[in-house]
């Protein structure tokens, strides 16, 4: 069985899965949860065009504030991008016009199992069990150089130092967990 989760799933993704089966005469590669890897292998966070602002520690602090207008990261507003596997950031919605984050609202994680009970939607993620791990975060060490706005740089650097520590711990924890799971198979 192929699972194409989402509430609803992206139309183009649904079409893509059907076209895959028709064109190649077999099922697409699936992940452990039965989702086609072509669309669900990456977290919304990994393909988010606002990701550089997360890495730089620039966040929307309140709806419609200056950061919101500049398109900064919605993590603090409850965005579930870091724990949601979907193609929203790449395929986008309705012929690629936009996706929730691009239109200013955080991802509510609608393609994740029982997403409605992973709330409330506006509390930011760190306080949640199952907080995702920055699997690609090891690449971001040099991000500070990207921060050009003088006034924000100091804040960004300190945020990054804290965050990189957190990320490092999480990666180690995750690796240990993965090793265990691997061993159990």
């Amino acid at each position: 069985m192929i699972k194409v989760p989402g509430c609803p799933p992206i139309g183009e993704v649904m079409a893509g899965v059907i076209v895959y089966v028709l064109a190649f005469g077999r099922l697409p590669q699936l992940d452990g949860l039965g989702r086609p890897k072509a669309f669900y292998a990456k977290r919304v966070h990994d393909s988010c065009y606002r990701r550089p602002f997360y890495d730089a520690g620039l966040f929307v602090e309140s709806w419609d504030d200056e950061s919101a207008k500049r398109g900064h990261c919605l993590y603090k507003m409850g965005c579930r991008g870091p724990v949601t596997y979907n193609a929203c950031g790449i395929t986008r919605w309705n012929d690629g016009v936009s996706y929730p984050i691009q239109s200013g609202h955080g991802c509510i994680g609608c393609s994740e199992e029982s997403f409605w009970d992973n709330g409330p939607f506006y509390r930011h993620l760190a306080s949640f069990p199952g907080f995702g791990i920055e699997t690609t975060a090891d690449k971001i060490g040099t991000v500070v150089g990207a921060v050009t706005v003088g006034g924000m740089a100091a804040h960004a650097i300190s945020t990054n130092i804290r965050k990189r520590k957190l990320i490092k711990d999480k990666i180690e924890e995750n690796n240990q967990k993965a090793d265990k799971e691997e061993g159990g198979k």
Binding site: W63, D64, K69, P100, S103
Partner: peptide, 17 residues
């Protein structure tokens, strides 16, 4: 609202700036 169906709304306004 970022998508259709089910675009995003917000108590107190609109989520887009």
């Amino acid at each position: 609202g970022g998508k259709n169906p089910h675009p995003n709304y917000l108590v107190g306004g609109a989520p887009c700036s």
